[in-house]
Simulated assay, not measured.
Amino acid sequence: MSDVVEGFRSFPVRLPAGVTYWTVVDGGLEPVAAADEFLINARLGRDLAESTTRAYATSIALYLRWCARIGMGWPQATVRLGRFVHWLQHDAGGGENLVVLDRPVRGARRVNCVLSAVREFIRFAVSTGLAEPTALEPLYDLVPDWDLPLELRGEGQARWRSRARHRLREAESLVDAASPEEILGLLRVCRNARDRFIIVAMWRMGLRRGELTGIRREDVHFVADASRLGCGIAGAHLHVRRRENVNGAAAKSRRHRPIPADWLVVQAYDRFMAERDVCRPAQGCDFLLVNLFRAPLGAPMRPQALNELLEALSRRAELERGIHPHMARHAFGSGVVAAGATLDEFKELMGHASFTSGEPYLHPDPRRLRAAVEGVPLPREIPGEVDW
């Protein structure tokens, strides 16, 4: 039975139609049937991004590896999921026995992501008859709905809902935004127009790295009259569309959205295109961001290349901390709010599915908080005597 073979790992599969998804294979490189069915359904049936199926496959492979080590089948091992949590936290890998380190090898957030993928997998297996319903019982508790917002609760008596039983408490962390000084520091040490355009595009348009590396030249409408391009949107802008991309880039949202560009973005783009046009291999590539200075020339840049670029620029600029792409996106989100954008404008520009998705992106300056408090008007007269 392949489900109890040591050495499970994630593996990419490219379908004849050109779609790539990630599955789980055992030590003999045979796909695990139940996991494969779940992952291909997630990719094709739910239209999840390739990167999402990769994260799911990696998490399920960890679970199957642990099941093999304790000698239980994956449907039955859910009764010991608490031990799986401990294994995720402390197993250093590479050995048959548990290697306990002085600190966890996986943080609470990473462990919770693995558990979420495992629960999704088990739920799918039960719903499709690949596992008995009893496999679900150890995963959830029934709790009253009093802690839910009023609009999500029923009227009258409390109703019951299922809640994941195994979940670590994550430390509250707010991803910091890159400061204007840090962004300018990166721009000063850029050695070419392409790198400057990348920094400016993330800083002034809030693009995710997967969105930016997936932009095609046809998506860029940096012209005064876009109607000539068959587009009814006025002003310089570009379109973010979800596609299948050979470089692994993917827009997070399925919904297409246009993003306005200011004069700084357009200026950086013009200088980048002048540099790009000199590279002959790049002229035949429809991707906007391509390799101009390393092989393979003209090939689309990978999303991870943006992380590598910002890490190198941070070191070159001698910044106190490394800047990564999402910090530039956070800087854009904070700037939009500080400029007075409404919630619906902020949500649309950031490409969020809900208003609550934007909470981690809000980084109000302490001076603005003080100004907001001091801006609350005092009454002209305080009736009666107040003992201050």
Rank of each mutant, 00 (worst) to 15 (best):
A261T: 01
R294G: 00
A274K: 09
A338M: 07
N247E: 09
P300Y: 04
P258L: 00
E320A: 14
G284I: 08
A331T: 03
I323K: 08
A274I: 00
V265N: 04
G248S: 05
G248V: 04
G333T: 05
A268M: 06
G248K: 10
A261Y: 05
P296I: 07
A250N: 10
H330I: 06
C285D: 12
R255T: 13
D262E: 07
F293M: 09
E320K: 14
D344N: 09
Q267S: 15
D286N: 08
G322Y: 02
G335Y: 01
M301I: 11
R241E: 15
F332D: 00
Q283M: 03
E275C: 08
E318D: 14
H330L: 00
A339L: 06
M273H: 09
P303R: 12
H324L: 07
F332T: 01
V290R: 06
A305W: 09
A338W: 05
P296E: 08
G340V: 04
W263R: 14
V265R: 02
R255I: 10
N307Q: 09
A305G: 01
D262C: 13
F332R: 00
G230Y: 11
S334M: 04
G322A: 13
V265W: 06
V265L: 10
E275F: 01
F332S: 02
D286P: 04
M273T: 10
G298F: 06
I323C: 04
